[in-house]
Every structure is written in structure tokens, then in C-alpha cells.
Amino acid sequence: MIELGEVVVRIYNIFFGTSVLFLIAVGLNLIYGVMRIVNLTHPAFFTLGCYTVAGLGVGIVISLLGTSLTPLLIIPPLIAALIVVIASLIVFPLFIYMSGKGDEVQLLVTYGLLLIFEDVFRLIWGVEPLRASQAYEMAGSLIVGEYLIPVYNIYVILSALILVLLLWLLLFKTKIGILIRASSMDIEMTAALGADVKKVLLVTVLLAGFLAGLGGGLYLPSASVMLGMSVELLVLAFVVVVIGGLGSFLGSFVGSFIVSVLRTITLMLFPELELALIYIVAILILTFKPEGLGGGRKW
């Protein structure tokens, strides 16, 4: 008999997982939507966000402001986002190079970058997993029946919701957002209408990086970061975009939610086969609904 407390905990885990996956997948889809590049490096940006918080952000905040909760909640993720935006800026020329090239080139170049990033993490932060759970611990927990719900994770879920809202406003209510969406429908047409396409591409790449970095920064205090994480995230994030539909904003959300549900169920029943089962579902979806469950809608 499953009791209420457990149900609450599981549901809330699903929301937490959805939030984290969404912050990765939405950037992957943004870049695919506008540049038609499946950016295998993207999950490494999330990992970079994690490392930045664990290896730098938290330290800075504590030494400057002491161990107090509010700055620890807000500042480290922003530092992480900033660092990842800088990293995105550095690799941006490669993205310009790749856009319009065959997908073989895109796959290999972004894969090469993934190898590089994973080794850079090792170079800077070593092989041991890193943690920085001060904010997580200080935020405390809620008690539901026999279960504890960490308040920090609720903060992550709320932050993700706010980010979704902001992102929606950006994409639908600002000029650059309209240009981004227009480019993803028809980039040549957008260029022909006089838009500065290069700027649109730059904003897209930086925005995707910003979201991944922020996501990683928000996620880290509740977990730890280690080598190989980018690849694990890559295979998960890829399922998310397959299920949701490549390039679809709504799909990022649907996909993240479904994958989180699947993970929660499989971790409960067959923990050894988690990834295998998720991929079986992805392949079924791809077979019967190749455009994904986002309904094939772009936005």
C-alpha cells in the first residue's frame, strides 16, 4: 500500500526532475530550432554550471557575504550562468562555421567539443565528485508523513517556473524573441527581411548557454557533479527532445515531464534498467509519432 507521503514525495520529485531537464532541453531545442544543429556539447554547459557553483561560486559568496541563505540561493547560479555564457561566446565561431554544413560535420564537431569540455573539467576540478550543499542544507526540509521534502528543491522548481515565464515573454513579446522564432521557421526569409541574422544566432547560442548554466547552478547544491555527467545528461536530454519533438519549445516541457515520470517509475521498479526502459519508450514514440509528442509544433 503506497501511502500519501510517498505519493507526494514522488510527484514532487517528478516536478524537480522536469524543471532540471527542461532547463537543459529548452536550450538544445532553441539551438536546433534556429541553427538546425543538434548541439552535443550543450549538456556540458549544464555540467560547467554545476562545476562553477561547486568550485567557485559558493566559495566567492561565502568569503564575501558569509554563510547566509539568500545570497547563496541567488548569486552562485548567476555566476554559473555568466561563466557558461562566456564559454558559449568562445565556441560561437564554431557554431557559425557549422550552420549549414552537413550533419556529419555538426555531430563530429560538437562531439569533439564535448570531449574537450569533459577534460577541461578534469584539468580544473580533478576527478573527485564535487559538492556544495550549503544552500540545500540551510534551506531545510518540510515533513510530509514519514518523508522529508527539501525546501531547496522547491526553490529550484519555482525558479524554473519563473524562467519559463520569462522565456515565454522574451520569445513572444520582445523584438529579438520574434526574430528568433521567425528564424527558426525560415531563416533565409528572416534574413531577406533585413534582420541581422548573425545577431539572432548569437543571442540564441548565448541564451541557450545562459539557461544551461543557470540550470546547472541551481541544480548543483542538491546533488554532486562528476566527470562523465555531460554524457549521461546528453543521453537523457536527447530522449527529452525526441519525445517532445526536435526544436519544439512546448515539446521541451512535455518531454521533460514524461522522462521524469518514466525515471521515477523505472527507478522504483527496475533501477538497473532505467536508461534502457526510457530509450525503449523513446524508440516507440519515434516509431509511431516521429514528430514527437509536442504535436510537431514549433512553439
Binding site: 563530429l108 564537431v109 569533439g112 567539443l113 577534460d119 584539468l123
Partner: peptide, 17 residues
């Protein structure tokens, strides 16, 4: 050097381009 993977990644990109 331990950072062999980094070199490998850079090489892949260089070869492709």
C-alpha cells in the same frame, strides 16, 4: 599529459574542418 581527451577532441574538430 593526462589531458589526452582534450587533445583528441581538438584533433577531431581540426580534422573535420
Amino acid at each position: 599529459f593526462i589531458y589526452w581527451q582534450l587533445i583528441m577532441g581538438a584533433f577531431i574538430i581540426a580534422i573535420v574542418i
